[in-house]
Computed example of a mutant assay.
Amino acid sequence: MANWPDPRTSSAGLGGSASATDVAFDAGLRSYMLSIYNYMASGVLVTGIVALLFAQSGLAYQILAGPGLLKFVIMFAPLVFVMVLSFGINRLQTSTAQMLYWAYAIVMGLSLASIFLVYTGESIATTFFATAAAFAGLSLYGYTTKRDLSAFGTFFIMGVVGILVASLINLFLQSSALMLAISILGVLIFAGLTAYDTQALKSQYSYVRGTDFMGKAVIMGALKLYLDFVNMFLFLLQLFGRRN
């Protein structure tokens, strides 16, 4: 993919037509990124509404705070959807990918209803808006910066793996100091991933533009930014959220 020609430079020798191509490319890029942001924001909104309604219904406490298989189904269902989308996106129809994305947003809402059992509504709302402001700033930086952030990709991926391993270890240790370190690192890593993923999605447009894959690329881009947002929100909530 890295050797594909950039549509903005392929017609550089055509004089005035190069400028028209640049304008068309930039307009398409803006539309492409706006579609990603719309899907991402809508997914977060659906997740938030489902989480709130599920928590207020009383079912969240009965299912998530009690014994039973359904609790684990709700907890791990989002991971299954992410894996299906990530590894099966090339074989899926665009409409199927869209359906799976919305289904993922719903089951994620069921899973995240547990935060209403732990933290006050005020601290959840405050942390959410703080995350939204931070996400907007970081994504804008990733979109506008001239600095190449691709070199940080491996570092961020290894950081995510490290957080997962440390979190599993802490299930047994129950160390508050380790949990604090995980939360701080989690915020920093997903803040970095927000800028990194935004720049990567912007660069990706050159390759998916005008292809059948473009619709699916929008869904996968929205999923990446959704995960960055939600994880940054959860780690910030662990750091600053007030418990019930």
Results as ranks from 00 to 15, higher is better:
residue 124 I to E: 00
residue 109 G to V: 05
residue 123 S to M: 00
residue 114 S to R: 13
residue 135 F to L: 11
residue 132 A to C: 03
residue 137 G to Y: 06
residue 116 F to L: 10
residue 134 A to E: 03
residue 133 A to N: 11
residue 113 A to E: 06
residue 109 G to N: 07
residue 133 A to P: 05
residue 127 T to I: 11
residue 128 F to C: 02
residue 129 F to Q: 02
residue 132 A to D: 04
residue 123 S to V: 00
residue 134 A to H: 07
residue 108 M to N: 14
residue 132 A to Y: 04
residue 122 E to R: 12
residue 132 A to L: 12
residue 123 S to W: 01
residue 128 F to R: 00
residue 106 I to W: 12
residue 133 A to W: 12
residue 127 T to S: 12
residue 136 A to Y: 09
residue 116 F to I: 07
residue 123 S to Y: 00
residue 111 S to Q: 13
residue 116 F to K: 08
residue 122 E to L: 08
residue 128 F to P: 00
residue 130 A to Y: 04
residue 127 T to P: 02
residue 115 I to C: 12
residue 108 M to D: 06
residue 136 A to Q: 05
residue 108 M to F: 13
residue 136 A to K: 10
residue 125 A to N: 03
residue 133 A to V: 15
residue 107 V to H: 13
residue 129 F to H: 05
residue 102 W to D: 09
residue 130 A to C: 05
residue 112 L to R: 09
residue 118 V to A: 07
residue 114 S to Q: 12
residue 124 I to S: 01
residue 122 E to G: 04
residue 102 W to R: 13
residue 106 I to L: 14
residue 127 T to M: 08
residue 136 A to T: 06
residue 137 G to L: 14
residue 109 G to Q: 06
residue 109 G to C: 09
residue 104 Y to R: 10
residue 106 I to R: 10
residue 103 A to K: 11
residue 117 L to D: 07
residue 120 T to Q: 07
residue 118 V to C: 05
residue 134 A to T: 02
residue 115 I to D: 06
residue 121 G to H: 04
residue 118 V to Q: 06
residue 117 L to W: 07
residue 131 T to H: 03
residue 124 I to L: 03
residue 113 A to D: 04
residue 114 S to C: 11
residue 117 L to N: 10
residue 119 Y to G: 00
residue 120 T to H: 09
residue 109 G to P: 02
residue 108 M to W: 09
residue 128 F to G: 01
residue 110 L to Q: 04
residue 119 Y to P: 00
residue 135 F to K: 05
residue 131 T to G: 13
residue 124 I to V: 05
residue 121 G to E: 05
residue 137 G to D: 03
residue 107 V to D: 03
residue 105 A to R: 06
residue 128 F to D: 00
residue 137 G to W: 08
residue 107 V to L: 13
residue 115 I to H: 14
residue 112 L to C: 08
residue 121 G to Q: 02
residue 130 A to F: 00
residue 135 F to I: 07
residue 119 Y to M: 01
residue 111 S to L: 09
residue 107 V to W: 10
residue 137 G to H: 09
residue 137 G to T: 04
residue 136 A to C: 08
residue 115 I to A: 13
residue 124 I to W: 04
residue 127 T to H: 07
residue 120 T to M: 10
residue 128 F to T: 01
residue 113 A to R: 07
residue 117 L to G: 14
residue 125 A to W: 01
residue 136 A to H: 05
residue 107 V to K: 13
residue 103 A to N: 14
residue 133 A to K: 11
residue 137 G to F: 07
residue 103 A to F: 14
residue 111 S to R: 15
residue 132 A to G: 08
residue 124 I to T: 01
residue 134 A to R: 04
residue 123 S to Q: 00
residue 118 V to T: 09
residue 119 Y to A: 04
residue 117 L to A: 12
residue 113 A to V: 03
residue 105 A to V: 11
residue 105 A to I: 07
residue 113 A to Q: 02
residue 110 L to N: 03
